[in-house]
Design a protein around this nucleic acid. Structure first.
Lengths: 340, 340
DNA sequence: CTGTTAGCGCTTTCAG
DNA sequence: CTGAAAGCGCTAACAG
């Protein structure tokens, strides 16, 4: 509180903020006229308007978002909430690009983006209820669906990368996409396949795992339980996961499907360290399509258009805030150097 | 506007938002009492308070940020503006971590983070003047200093990674740090050094370049103009920059200083593609210390504590909003595999 | 076309 | 300790 107080002191220390009344007085009109002159729309004498606009500019007047919001009921800004599990949020390029897409859509309409990293559930609810924003985009999986529904009672809301009954969402398809890239591996000659999941508790990774199994079945291959390993989500998990596969005693896989790109890249590092060649000895594929110019290797992966994910979600929020909709985007195959 | 209107419709379609009056009525007290009960501080009958708190909870009442802000003059949120030149903002892990540090500091005080990517200068000024936030953190170099000063008249403001006379700032030191890492290269045996700048118009890169030259001079080496190349900031610039060095006809450098990590990594890629060995034939160092687990190689670099940059800036904004201060953080040397 | 007036939801004197 | 009332800055009827 002391901090906010400090910020506040500042404001009052400034040469008194100019209000609509100052402009009205100086322009010799009423505050209503000032309001009308500045919010184009109503008919008003062009000369009066020009005069008011001039005075407003001179005084550096800008309508207070608070005062305006109080009567209009709008804030002209949209909130974005990112799941706790994904922190540090900004380190994951995945979410960065999603935000970029959201920004794009909002900026086109002159709306502000308010980013709020996840606090306690009840704080989030309070945030929604306090009407600091006109709508909410939620990225990530760790909010209880009940909280989401509660928030939905206060504000329109769209989920990103997650789907819940009765709530709007934009997601990407995981299962057939993962089957597709697994098939690619098999077609290119791999028969002994390992799967590295970042977190099998996450529904999206579950779907990818199912797709992996679909492809195995379809191609007449069998699943080796020891070759399905979970990689702790912190950096480096893929390395130890593939190491466990190598140590399982079933020999060396000739194909590895990483549940996402970081896991796949870490696995490649481990394979190289173990003296294996990629893709000659082992083909490796990932999932997500993270920008990889600086990476160990150009990865074969399923590219998710993250910007589109954000754009669409913002669009849904703005255009159809009241009818729940579910959009599912299909990732597309990108051939890199980690597979043949 | 139609979009905002749509969001607005939603709000009004909802079961009328509960206001302080609803709580007062239901609790059988005045709105003043509700306000007092909920904003701990004033003395009030514990029973009354308990009663009010209970009713408020039942009704799911949360004070409107607008109404409260109008009278208190505060918004309890801090804005962050990121320079146009750094877009797409979120793709650069540098700024992501800074944001993380800011978040940390704000969260500890219950303040909200409002992220606004850069629009036109006058829009930014309007944003500041509209008092949507209590203070502003500005990351990046492309805002005219005059605009910054104008904004400063409306709000307290702290610059990050940039310094201007009379404005608060948190920056990192570039010159001696770059000299230090250049010296490392020389001590490890490099004598023919190239420098790859991302953008020599940027004062920070200029400082690094100066540091590079300081080290050369100090160690009795001379600067080859052809071996100072600018790398266009888009991904891949470092690749072509080092290629130009190789084609300059002066032979092959045995040491390369990249003005930042991406440029250095791209250069390594190009060197490897050209059949050279890193660090055996050519040592390469970067600057920034981006997380590199997934990269081509662990880079020797000067690590900037980006989170600290954000934390300190937020701290300055909150604690000393009125007296301009300048904090300079020193990067520290990190040895990787790209140098001996 | 423009001025007057009534709030938007809340906090904060000022009286009781 | 609590209620009444003023007013934060603005927009939107409602009169002129």
């Amino acid at each position: 509180m002391s901090s906010s107080a400090a910020l506040q002191q500042h404001a009052s220390a400034k040469p008194q903020r100019v209000s609509i009344r100052d402009v009205a007085e100086r322009a010799g009109v009423s505050i209503a006229t000032v309001s009308r002159a500045l919010n184009s729309g109503v008919e008003i004498n062009p000369d009066t308007r020009a005069q008011v606009v001039q005075v407003a500019r001179d005084l550096g007047y800008v309508a207070s978002a608070r005062g305006r919001g109080l009567v209009s009921g709008r804030t002209d800004s949209v909130g974005v909430i990112i799941g706790r599990e994904h922190l540090p949020v900004f380190l994951n390029p995945f979410y960065g690009e999603v935000l970029g897409g959201i920004e794009l859509e909002l900026e086109a309409r002159g709306l502000n983006l308010v980013l709020t990293s996840l606090k306690r559930d009840h704080q989030l609810l309070a945030f929604a209820a306090a009407q600091r924003v006109d709508g909410l985009l939620v990225i990530g999986h760790d909010l209880p669906v009940s909280t989401l529904r509660d928030m939905q009672r206060h504000l329109p809301l769209v989920l990103i990368d997650r789907h819940e009954e009765g709530l709007s969402a934009v997601t990407s398809e995981h299962r057939t996409a993962c089957a597709q890239i697994t098939r690619h591996l098999i077609v290119q000659g791999s028969t002994r396949l390992a799967f590295l999941a970042e977190d099998l508790g996450n529904p999206n990774f579950q779907q990818r795992f199912l797709g992996f199994q679909d492809a195995l079945k379809e191609m007449g291959l069998s699943l080796r339980p020891d070759w399905v390993q979970e990689a702790s989500p912190r950096l480096g998990g893929g390395y130890t996961a593939i190491t466990r596969v190598l140590e399982a005693g079933d020999g060396v896989p000739d194909g590895v499907v990483g549940a996402n790109d970081p896991v796949a890249l870490e696995a490649i590092r481990a394979l190289l360290d173990a003296g294996l060649k990629v893709p000659d000895d082992v083909q490796v594929v990932g999932f997500d399509g993270l920008p990889s110019r600086l990476h160990l290797m150009e990865l074969t992966t399923m590219q998710i258009d993250r910007q589109e994910l954000g754009r669409r979600a913002a669009h849904l929020l703005l255009e159809t805030p009241d009818s729940p909709q579910h959009l599912e985007l299909q990732p597309h195959f990108v051939k890199g150097d980690s597979s043949r």
